[in-house]
Design a binder for these strands. Structure first.
Lengths: 98, 98
DNA sequence: TCGACAGGCAAGCAGGAACTTGCGTATCGT
DNA sequence: ACGATACGCAAGTTCCTGCTTGCCTGTCGA
């Protein structure tokens, strides 16, 4: 639980999640490249790799190996736990507004 | 935005939010006492005060002064921004399941 | 087979976060 | 008025985090 928030606390990691939401299943180098081009974040390969480790440990990213490539997939299920923790859905959610 | 996640990354601060959700409008000393009794967190007064400052800066807690007392109120609206950022409500939310 | 590519491991460093310590200020009760 | 209460401010300490640096492993193409 705390790992999820700690992972989301970093802007580079949030940019990684945004990038994966837009295009799922990217490799490390793809993410490095698109992070600079589309998000203006200029981090080294090792830095991004360590960020992805943190995201994976938090359960926000799942990986799949294939040969020498490692694809990263977004998993938003830990975020739903946040919604339920502070009951964000039962007060005046965007679904059933009477 | 980043301030919200950074504030939520700390377990003591999450306990403070839980405590405020259960009983809104508490003072600093009330929160210190109940943090030990109900959450098992033994932090000093200054530590809790600094945590509340972080939460207030993140917009998760709003304060109201009255004489020598300062009441703290929970505000979950920054958390709703999280829900909308990763579209947690439009995929298969707990409201309108077809 | 050999070089290039994709990624991993680990030590080290600079900056920040959390907590403590000590003192200061404003408010309330008596 | 005076002490007690509720809280604020600021420096110092310790620990964690993010990033770099350097080297290593595994995989693919020519």
């Amino acid at each position: 639980m705390g790992d999820v928030f700690r992972a989301l606390a970093d802007p580079t990691r949030r940019a990684l999640l945004d990038e994966l939401q837009e295009r799922d299943g990217q490799t490390l180098f793809e993410l490095c490249t698109r992070l600079i081009q589309r998000h203006g974040v200029g981090s080294s390969r090792q830095a991004v790799s360590q960020h992805l480790e943190v995201l994976e440990q938090a359960g926000l990213v799942r990986t799949r190996r294939e040969g020498r490539y490692k694809f990263h997939h977004l998993d938003t299920s830990p975020l739903r736990a946040i919604v339920e923790r502070w009951r964000l859905d039962t007060e005046e959610g965007p679904c059933g507004s009477p």
